[in-house]
Write a protein that binds this DNA or RNA. Structure first.
Length: 661
DNA sequence: TTAGGGTTAG
């Protein structure tokens, strides 16, 4: 029997405790006082009596235990080395504290040293301790080490299996995660709520998800809040929003994470409206938004181009100023809402920037028509030491393609592998096809498609088709269109593009034939729609729409504006009319495009000098582009239009896209 | 005593 005398060096009382095992003492104190009490005792300066036990094995273990609870990794490792030399071991709980400390510090080497120590000289650690080591390897993403250790375990319990399943799920090795679940079941170990909440993420097929969901219901674990949020999340990831909402609405109690799951799910599935509705419900239920909530709300604002609402969210973002993910979402919101001034300000103020911050700003400049700024920022990014990734290069090529910077684009494309180690992907080729095609180099664009290392998809061919439309190359357009439709026979956009081309070359019979094909196949053109946010309310306009309460005054104002613009030299560009119409009829079919109605409504409602910001679902037509340019000059007003691909900032008779879109 | 859910750029 050995004894340990502990002396307080502060105001605490002295304790004398008799002990029987070297690996037992301070853990007993910890349990006796409660772990937090022990931690505070250790932190307050308790120490072993040095004169009493200078090299006593017990004091070595005590030192080790104390350093582990103090989270002093360096000293704990020194003490561990000393224990190893003396063939001493501490208790499992103490090792767990040390392993947690290794995980927190990303200390892989030290973690492996602990692993080696607890198996040294034939020592047999408990299953509980091996589980902690498994978890450590999982957190370090050292899955081979975890699997080897798992295979060597004399006894595996449900935590061992669940740890491995979670490890493979987190690493997106979904097949392995599901395989582990099957093996777990075959081993006769019952999965619990921890297991199911981990394995759900690994469901790659909808039928697998359904099967696991059935198992969850059968064993009555659907009520567990973690399982339920995992279910909501995976259904959202599969785009099954109705199912996700059903699971969410069934919940009796919920917590903030579940709210975040459902709000995030809708925001990520481009249903910003429902995401914002759910956010309002969440607030009414008494929850306060955290970083995750605000990130999803900003994403919803971004998809709906709600700048004013986004600004309100910004106020709440300030208290989480250290959250990089949230800061990036805010930056993206300002970029996508076309407010480059706010975006630049946000970007400049960010103390820490990662590759996503830089890429967001580069893409933001490129989409808003500031290609040169995008390329300058790319150089700045490299100078800062941030390594570009796949998406950054995509943004750079996007900047080149949208400004017709053929030589720059070719340089970045050809050197991306050598300089940044990034293989060109389908999207990079797509940008180059766009760049070459819209610069009139259609043959080169075609050759590049044939040289692609990956198979061109419908988007690639559609890009070429878009360039053919600009340069009125009918033969290549028909070829590209056939390619698109062979890959995606229901692509309404391609029918419309081809129809536009036929219309531009007065091939009205072909226009009619296409329309019949579409009708026969049940393919419908998405109607052009524009949105504008006025005083926190969103107003939607559809081509020729007359449902708005102020419809009469809007149409009256639009007609007057067109009349005044014509006096200034505006000539409607009837190349964008699809029907076989003549004269005034052709002009009328252009006059009431949704963006024109939205612009006019914005000018009627917004104070003088306030920028009119429009979001629309289809690419802007040439006539509306001319209309917006001339109107911005005539009324001395900035107009910003965001279409699905890029942004147009109209000011003083010119557009930021330089008429190149 | 060990294992589980939500957020950012194309």
């Amino acid at each position: 029997m050995q004894s340990l005398v502990m002396k307080p060096i502060s105001r605490f009382k002295c304790y004398s405790i008799s002990l029987q095992r070297t690996s037992f003492p301070l853990s007993l104190i910890a349990i006796f006082l409660g772990r937090s009490s022990f931690s505070s005792v250790a932190a307050a300066g308790w120490r072993t009596e040095p004169s009493a036990l200078p090299r006593n094995p017990l004091s070595i273990v005590n030192d080790f235990t104390m350093y582990c609870y103090q989270r002093d990794l360096g000293k704990a490792m020194e003490a561990l080395d000393s224990m190893q030399r003396h063939k001493l071991w501490a208790d499992s709980i103490t090792y767990t504290e040390l392993i947690k400390c290794c995980i927190a510090h990303g200390a892989v080497k030290q973690g492996k040293r602990v692993h080696q120590h607890v198996f040294s000289y034939g020592y047999e650690p408990k299953t509980f301790l091996i589980n902690t080591l498994l978890n450590m390897y999982a957190k370090f993403n050292l899955l081979d080490e975890a699997q080897t250790l798992f295979d060597q375990m004399p006894e595996k319990n449900f935590v061992s299996w669940t740890t491995m399943i979670a490890a493979y799920s987190n690493a997106e090795l979904n097949y392995k995660a599901l395989e582990m679940l099957i093996m777990m079941l075959r081993d006769g170990v019952r999965p619990n709520m921890y297991t199911y909440s981990s394995v759900l993420r690994a469901c790659e097929g909808f039928s697998t998800l359904k099967q696991i969901h059935c198992c969850i219901i059968k064993v009555g674990l659907e009520l567990d809040v973690f399982v339920r949020s995992a279910l909501i999340d995976i259904y959202c990831k599969w785009g099954e929003l109705k199912a996700a909402l059903y699971i969410f609405d069934e919940m009796v109690t919920s917590d903030l994470v579940v709210w975040n799951s459902i709000i995030g799910g809708f925001a990520q599935n481009s249903d910003g409206d429902e995401a914002l509705n759910l956010f309002i419900r969440m607030k009414r239920s008494g929850f306060w938004a955290d970083q995750s909530t605000l990130t999803s709300v900003l994403r919803a604002c971004t998809s709906l181009a709600l700048l004013e609402l986004g600004r309100q969210v910004h106020v709440h973002v300030i208290k989480f100023h250290r959250d990089l993910v949230l800061a990036n979402a805010l930056l993206d919101m300002y970029c996508k809402c076309g407010s480059l001034k706010d975006a630049n300000c946000t970007f400049t103020r960010m103390i820490v920037k990662d590759v996503i911050s830089w890429s967001t700003m580069i893409i933001g400049f490129a989409q808003n028509g500031y290609s040169r700024k995008a390329l300058e920022l790319f150089e700045e990014m490299k100078a800062s030491g941030t390594k570009p990734n796949y998406i950054t290069i995509l943004g750079v090529l996007f900047a080149c393609s949208h400004a017709g910077l053929v030589k720059d684009g070719q340089y970045y494309f050809e050197s991306m592998k050598m300089l940044y180690g990034i293989d060109p992907g389908r999207e990079h080729y797509g940008c180059m096809v766009d760049l070459l095609g819209r610069a009139g180099k259609l043959e080169e664009a075609m050759k590049l498609i044939h040289k692609m290392k990956c198979e061109p998809d419908a988007v690639t061919w559609r890009t070429l088709l878009g360039a053919c439309r600009v340069h009125r190359n009918m033969d290549l357009a028909e070829y590209a269109a056939k390619k698109v439709l062979s890959l995606n026979p229901h692509d309404a956009g391609t029918y419309i593009l081809l129809s536009n081309l036929y219309a531009n070359t007065q091939r009205w019979d072909d226009v009619e034939s296409l329309r019949k094909t579409m009708k026969h196949a049940g393919i419908k053109k998405e109607p052009g729609c524009s949105w504008i946010e006025i005083n926190k309310q969103v107003h939607a306009f559809i081509l020729g729409d007359k449902s708005h309460p102020q419809v009469n005054s809007i149409y009256q104002e639009l007609n007057q504006i067109i009349w005044r613009l014509k006096a200034e030299g505006y000539v409607p560009d009837t190349n964008f009319v699809l029907q076989d119409l003549e004269g005034e009829q052709m002009e009328n079919s252009l006059a009431y495009h949704s963006e024109k109605l939205a612009i006019v409504f914005g000018m009627m409602c917004l104070p003088e000098g306030k920028t009119v910001r429009i979001r629309k679902n289809l690419r802007i037509c040439g006539d509306c582009h001319d209309f917006a340019k001339l109107l911005a000059k005539m009324e001395n007003r900035s107009i910003v239009i965001r279409d699905p691909i890029r942004y147009h900032h109209f000011q003083g008779g010119i557009c930021s896209c330089g008429d190149y879109w």
